[in-house]
Structures are given as C-alpha cells and as structure tokens.
Design a protein around this nucleic acid. Structure first.
Length: 793
RNA sequence: GCGGGUGUGGCGGAAUUGGUAGACGCGCGGGUCUUAGGAGCCCGUUCCGUAAGGAGUAUCGGUUCAAGUCCGAUCACCCGCACCA
C-alpha cells in the first residue's frame, strides 16, 4: 500500500499529515492482522522550486533538495509513520533516474517516444513547455494566474494516444476508484465516434482544386451543411483565400494567434470569422458552399475543419445568424419548427432525416451508418474515432530534471545513449540565471560529445524530462529499490503489483493517475510486467485540510504548522485529531480546541494506565466464561468496541467513528474503574491491554508505552489484532421503542428474544402507551425484534 | 450550459439493511474536589414549552405502520468539464 510521495519542499504541511496518517493506520492495522505489508516512502525530487531556490539563495538545486529531504524525513519520522525506509527512493538520485533513462530508451526503441514540431503550451513563469494535462483552464497548473502561451517548437512526445482506447476501456475495471476520478479521466480521454468526410476546396482566384477532410459526429446532417469553417491556423487557409479577402483574413489570423487559449475559451464569447472568398463542394450533393475561418474551430482537434450545419449545431447556428448564412432543416422531430425562419436555436437531438436525397426518411442513427457507407464506397470518407486526449509532451526547458538520453548527430540523426553509458548525469555547474531556453544548452563541456555511432562531434539533448515521467513508475521501483541490474525484478513485481491501496489528493485525478496507468500498460507491453495492466486497485482521495472554511495556503495566511502542533501536543494527538475530525474523503476543518480535546482523551487513557498498570501488570489476560454485573457490562462494551473498530478500519474506511468507539470504551472504563474499582482485576487488565492494542494504529507512541506498563508481550504494534467474541457483542436485553401511529411513546427493556406477544403485553402495561391507545381499536401491529413495536390505531 | 457531489444542533460530525435523529468530540451550563481552579472527575445540553406535549435532518410534495435514508420537483453551496465539431 502506498501514499502519494511528496515533493521535498522542506516542510510537511497538514495535507501530508492527513494523507500519511490515514495510510499509516491501515498499514499498522494490516501488520497487526498478520499481513505482509509493503509500505514505502520516497521523494518526487526533481522540479522547478529547486532552481528558484538556487537562484534566490545561491545553493545548488541538488544540495537544496537533499537538505529538504533530510528535514522532511525527520518530520515524517517524528509523526511515527511506519515506513520501510530501506526502500526509500528519490527521483533526483542517479540510481533512480538511471532506470528512468533506461525506460525512456526502451520506449524509444518501441517507437513510443518521438519528436515533432507542433504548437505547444508555454508557461512564461516556468520558462518551459507544458503537457496538455498541465494546463488548467488556460492557466499553468503550477502558476494559476499565468495564462499559457502557444509556441511552435520541436519537442519530445510520448504516444499516450496509442493507449487511449485501453485507458478508456480499463476504467471499467477500476471499481474501487472514486467515481468522479473515473469520470474525469473518461472526459479527458474524450472519445467521439464519427465520420471523416472529404470535401473539395475550389480556390477563389483560379479554380485550383484541393481535397480536405472534416470530422463530424453527425454525418446524418451532411445535407444541411451550408458552409465550411477552417481553424485560422490551418495551413490550407493561406492557399484558399482570394486576393480581395486576403488582408481581412490575415488580420484575423494574426489576432487569433495573439489571443491566449484563455481568451479563446471565454464564456459566451460572440462568434467571429472571415469569409475567404473560396468555396467547397459537399460530396453528398455537389453543392457549392462558402468557406470561412473562425476561432471557434480548433486546429488541434479532428482535422481542424468543420462542416457547418446551423440548424443542428448550436455553435454553427450562432455563427450563421451573425453572418446571415443560410439554414436548412434536415432532421425532423418534435420541437423542430416548421420553417428555418422560426428557429431560435439549433435542434441537436435525433429525428427523421428530410431533404437528404436518397437518405430521406431514415432515422438519424440509421442515416449515420448509411451515409458513412455511401461515402466509403466512393472514397469520400470513412468511419473514424477521435480522442480529445493528445500525445504527452515531455520535454522541459529546465535544468533540475532527468536528462534525455539521446544524442543529436549531424550525420546519424538521433542516437540513443548506449546502455553502458547510463545514467546521463547533470553537469554540476550551470548558469541558471541567464535568460533563454534550456540551461543545459549553455554548458558546452556537457553538451558536446562524440556520437556513439560514428564518433563524430555531436550534442546531447539540452532539455530535461517532465517530472511526471519520474513519478509514473516510482511505485514499481519501491518493489525492488536497490536493484542495480534492472529497474525492478519482474517476479517480485508480479508478486506485489498492483498496489492494493493508493491514497492521495484529488488534484492528480488526471495528471499523475492517468500517466501511471499509461506507464503500467507500456511496461507490460515492454515485457517488464506480466498480467498487470492497472497500477492501483483501490484509490482513496482524501479531502482538503481547511481553516476558516478555506484551503490552507501561504497566500491566505491560514496555515497551521504540523511541527508546532507536534511540539505542543505530540505526534499522537496530531494524528488522532486529523483522523477524528472528519472521514478521509471529506474536507477537514482545523480546530485548535478539537486538538485539545484529542489531547485530553489521550491524557485520560494515560491516567487510567498510571492508576492500574503497576498492579495489573502481574495479572494475566483472561476471558471470563460467565461474567456478571459490571464485569459483564465492561466485557460486552470491550467486544462491541473491538468489532466496531475492526469494521470501521477494514470495511468502512472511516476512522473518526473508530476513534469515537474507543472513546466510548474509555468512558465505560471510567465508569467502572475510576472512583472505585467495580470490576475484577482480570477483566480490567484484559480491557486495558485490548485498549492499548486498538489504540496502536492511531496513537502508536502512547499505545506502546501503555503496553509496556501493562507488561504485554513484545511490542504492541507487533501484537496480533484482537478478535472479538460474538457472545459478548449482543446483549441479552434490548431497548424496544413503542410507537403509536408512528410516534414514539415509550421505551421498554425487553429480553432479546422477546416475542411479539411479549412485547405487546409489556407495551400495553405502560401508562403512556395506554393513554394513546385509549378508546381506539388497534388495527395493525408491526414488530421488529430488537428494535420496535408499532401500533396503528 | 453539461456532469458529479454536498446540505443534519452554537461547531466538527454520527446514524452501516427504511426501524429510538443528534453517537463521539468541541463549545456552553451546573455540580464536586480545592486556599484557589484555567487541572481532574461527575451531570446536563436540538428547538419551543413550567409541564403534558409539540416541532425538527435545505424547501415543497409523494410512497410507507414507519423516511435523514426511497421517489418527484425546487433552492443553495462546492468540485470537474466547458466552442472537442
């Protein structure tokens, strides 16, 4: 089991405390249950903050990072988290990134890594390109107030789109993932089934003809196409535009280029566009329709051209209305106006095809198939599936990242670094302050190397790799962290994978979690994993830690330092509060007095131990055969607590209620053993030892201390999780509620096995019940044994 | 706009299969111990009402002997996506 490893910023925050406390409870519980638990921790240690710190404080990024790791490791250890530190990994260390480079080269051999020149996202603050997944609403994921810009650059990509269908299909297997994460991934992949249709463009000036394709999910509306729209950046636009429209078109294209992605996505933005003075021929009816450009068409999706059917597509409708373009209804259904002139909005639903030549009369579903077949038969189109997902751009123009193990040779082209030369290390000295791309490109002694293939002069790739590449396989490295002959042993991976439980923040719903799924499938296809296709069986996304209703953040100044809380109350209190205040998936509001309450509770436990342990340490555990009186009451409470806490941890994954049950047990112990001891030594000693055991996953330090005081054998965290005895879980008398006409009128104490007649007799003997039944015949009686008896009068 | 989630005391939250709404904790009130208590221990604490009783889980309606829980509509807040052809 695993929690998402942190970026070593230097200080842990409450989100970490929460994430890791949740995981630690489960790990410690499973260990006590006798499971073999692999519970490691490591560091997502490459990344931009180290470079910023280097410039600000004049310390090398490596030193800054390693110092932070040492600090944070200490903070995690102070929390008492049960990690196997022998498996610790840091992505910035050569024995980790050596294997990252090795994996990169395996993917390169397989053709999964390639270079291409494309319009890419550029963050001016990161001074680097970003993957699509790292652009959130037009902004950089790390700088949420910085719009990304578009640049034409040649960059490294990974073919994640090759796996789009499998990534989509396998979402159905993730039955133990939160539904919203699955939905977010499904939407991100964005599969659309449709048809590619070939139109012919006629150049305005000379009748020059050129075929071009559109992608549509509505081939059934093809007869309603009254114009065509190209994305402004589309390469064909230049060739199509007529001389008299040229200036207007070029001005529009320039404006579109300048606008940020954010501008173009602005809500309710009025459609704009320019006529090119050129026409296209619709293949189904040979109709000549005008060609426009507009920025509502995205060059990067589909073919970058759409056929416009204003009657059955709202966007086209808005555009057509603005530029007074013709409308033609080709789908009839309830709610579609008689004439085009009466339309106030496009009708996008299904219906019966009309005005569609030989296809008139078909349903839209049938029509989609028939028209696609018709086009296929004439070489004018074919069925096609489009994905919104794009290939993963992995180059970064930064220093503090994994070097790309490729050498650029003028003669041989791209040459992989031979395996024996791995890892490719970063140069020690680099000028991070200078302005411009890729700090590594300014280190000639590192950059210039002999080509491994021809021996001639060549250059290393000056970029580093997206840190999400590093974090996409760290869970696999944990399996075999010290292996120096392979990234991991395949048999060991087979034994441990998939991760049974993965806990982390929702912010990686698409980023890290999608990339890791993709990597796992690639590793399988590279033969490095067998049978495993999904990395994480169960996923838990924990809620935020808030204060005053807002997420804790430096800019809001509402952070609480875990170190200070540990200093004042101790690690056990910090852990206990954060688990007690809210169930894992929900947000958690920080409360200083709530922390104090948890501290009081632990004090209460300790006082009880101090009072009894010296004497009871000599009293062995014994489960009484037939306890009576308070001995029975305490024994029952103990076993009820054991059952509830076990269920809460194992089945319900709800620790706040588990802790509240333990608190109830402690309250009962105070009742029977504080002012005066009302129970036998054996029963009390047993209860106190079980209490220490149940407390162990939550408050391991105090639990260990109590266990030692009570002379429990070995260490409490290695003891066997106690089992409950079903005999003591149910009590032999129960409270029965008496209802008259659905209203509660009395409570009775009855034997568990009381019959309906017993309950009825007892209820009728009660004064309050009598008063409400008076003079009214009972029409019906409902009896739920152990719960209630209900009279209908 | 589309998709998802949430809504329960003064506060965090509980109620697992339709069966005692408010467990547990905080806060508040009271008692006890004490020279003192801001420590500890004990009791009380959904609201209205002296009480009997009544009302009550965002709002309105429905199903049921019985609804926080199921069904329908509405409102509020939060999250994700958002010209994807």
């Amino acid at each position: 089991m695993l929690e998402m490893f942190p970026y070593p910023s230097g200080r842990i925050h409450m989100g970490h405390v929460r994430n890791y406390s949740i995981g630690d409870v489960v790990a410690r519980y499973l260990i006590m249950r006798g499971c073999t638990v692999l519970h490691p921790m490591g560091w997502d240690a490459f990344g931009l903050p180290a470079e910023n710190a280097a410039q600000k404080h004049g310390v090398h990024p490596r030193q800054w990072t390693l110092d932070n790791i040492a600090d944070m490791r200490g903070q995690l250890q102070r929390l008492g988290l049960a990690y196997d530190w022998d498996r610790e990994v840091a992505t910035c260390l050569p024995d980790y990134y050596k294997w990252g480079q090795w994996l990169f080269l395996k993917m390169y051999e397989k053709g999964l890594v390639y270079r291409k020149k494309a319009a890419v996202n550029w963050c001016p603050k990161c001074e680097s390109v970003l993957a699509n997944e790292q652009v959130i609403g037009g902004m950089c994921w790390r700088h949420e107030d910085t719009p990304v810009e578009s640049r034409q650059l040649e960059q490294w990509f990974i073919r994640i789109t090759d796996y789009a269908q499998e990534l989509l299909d396998d979402l159905d297997k993730l039955t133990e993932w939160p539904e919203r994460v699955v939905t977010m991934q499904r939407n991100w992949i964005g599969r659309s089934v449709g048809t590619r249709v070939t139109f012919t463009a006629i150049g305005a000036a000379d009748g020059w003809q050129h075929p071009f394709d559109v992608f549509t999910t509505r081939p059934d509306t093809l007869f309603g196409a009254t114009y065509v729209v190209f994305a402004p950046e589309h390469p064909l636009v230049e060739k199509l535009v007529s001389p008299q429209h040229r200036k207007a078109a070029l001005d529009y294209i320039a404006a579109a280029r300048k606008a940020t992605a954010q501008d173009r996505m602005a809500e309710n933005r009025e459609k704009t566009g320019v006529f090119l003075g050129a026409y296209a021929i619709n293949p189904v009816n040979d109709e000549r329709i005008p060609i426009y450009i507009s920025d509502y068409v995205l060059v990067e999706y589909g073919t970058g051209v759409v056929m416009a059917v204003p009657t059955h597509d709202q966007r086209d409708f808005e555009f057509a209305r603005k530029y007074d373009l013709p409308l033609r209804i080709v789908i009839r259904a309830e709610g579609v106006p008689e004439s085009e002139a009466d339309m106030t909005a496009a009708y996008e639903g299904p219906g019966m095809m009309v005005e569609s030549g030989p296809f008139t009369g078909l349903s839209s579903e049938e029509g989609k198939m028939k028209i696609t077949e018709w086009l296929e038969g004439r070489g004018k189109g074919k069925a096609e599936i489009q994905y919104r997902l794009k290939d993963w751009l992995i180059s970064r123009q930064r220093y503090w990242g994994m070097p790309i193990p490729i050498i650029h040779c003028g003669k041989c082209g791209l040459v992989p670094v031979p395996e024996k030369d791995l890892p490719v290390d970063l140069p020690e000295k680099v000028d991070l302050a200078a302005i411009g791309n890729s700090p590594l490109s300014r280190v000639p002694e590192w950059l210039n190397v002999a080509c491994p293939s021809c021996g001639g002069s060549a250059r290393r790739d000056p970029d580093t790799i997206d840190t999400f590449f590093d974090s996409s396989w760290y869970f696999l490295r944990f399996i075999d962290a010290r292996n120096d002959r392979a990234p991991w042993d395949k048999a060991l991976a087979e034994q441990w994978m998939p991760v049974d439980l993965y806990i982390g923040g929702i912010e990686h719903a698409i980023l890290h979690l999608l990339y890791s799924r993709f990597f796992t499938k690639v590793m399988r296809d590279l033969g490095l994993l067998a049978r495993v296709s999904e990395p994480f069986k169960k996923l838990v996304t924990q809620g935020m830690v808030t204060k005053d209703g807002a997420k804790m953040s430096k800019s809001l100044g509402n952070t609480v330092d875990p170190g200070a809380i540990i200093q004042e109350y101790g690690a056990d209190t910090a852990r206990l509060f954060i688990l007690f205040a809210s169930p894992p998936q929900k947000d958690l509001e920080w409360s200083e007095s709530g922390v104090a309450g948890c501290s009081r509770f632990l004090d209460r436990v300790y006082r009880l131990m101090v009072k009894y342990a010296p004497r009871l340490a000599a009293v062995p555990d014994s489960d009484p055969e037939h306890p009576a009186g308070d001995d029975l009451a305490l024994t029952q409470r103990l076993h009820q607590t054991l059952k509830a806490v076990t269920d809460d941890i194992e089945q319900r994954f709800q620790f706040n209620t588990a802790i509240s049950r333990i608190m109830e047990l402690v309250n009962e112990l105070y009742r029977v053993a504080w002012d005066e001891q009302k129970v036998s030594d054996a029963v009390l000693a047993t209860a106190l030892r079980r209490l220490a055991q149940m407390l162990s996953p939550f408050a391991p330090h105090l639990a260990e201390e109590c266990w030692e005081m009570l002379a429990g054998p070995g260490r409490v965290c290695r003891s066997n999780w106690p089992r409950y005895d079903p005999r003591f879980v149910v009590e032999d008398t129960v409270e029965i509620v008496v209802q008259v006409n659905g209203k509660k009128r009395a409570e009775l104490r009855l034997p568990l096995n009381a019959t309906q007649d017993d309950a009825r007799t007892a209820a009728l003997a009660d004064g309050r019940v009598q008063r409400h039944l008076e003079g009214r015949p009972v029409r019906k009686v409902v009896y739920v044994p152990g719960r209630l008896i209900s009279f209908v009068v």
